[in-house]
């Protein structure tokens, strides 16, 4: 499994925990599916929780609202940002 795939699996578990997504397992989450409206059907409060997750677990804070929307498109876009910032846990 590549580092990105490992990170995606790690993120899926963290998202399930942070958003209390009962009855959903990491295998149920498509890494490329939209997080909001479709896919997991998340909303604006979940977006705040995901931003907190990135800041708390990876030290990444995004100020630009446009950039936030891009990053929170899918689990994969979140993983790519973490990788690009060099925050992948060894």
């Amino acid at each position: 499994m590549s580092k990105e795939e490992e990170l995606i699996e790690e993120l899926k578990t963290q998202i399930i925990d942070a958003l209390s997504l009962e009855d959903i397992t990491p295998a149920d989450i498509d890494a490329d599916a939209p997080l909001f409206v479709e896919g997991l059907g998340l909303d604006s409060i979940d977006a705040i929780e995901l931003m907190l997750l990135l800041e708390r677990n990876y030290g990444i804070r995004i100020e630009d609202p446009k950039k936030r929307r891009e990053v929170l498109t899918s689990v994969r876009t979140m993983a790519k940002l973490i990788e690009s910032k060099g925050q992948v846990k060894e």
Partner: peptide, 13 residues
């Protein structure tokens, strides 16, 4: 716990 930072909004709401 979080030194007044990064607070989850749900318990507050």
């Amino acid at each position: 716990d979080n030194q007044e930072k990064m607070l989850s909004p749900i318990p507050f709401i």
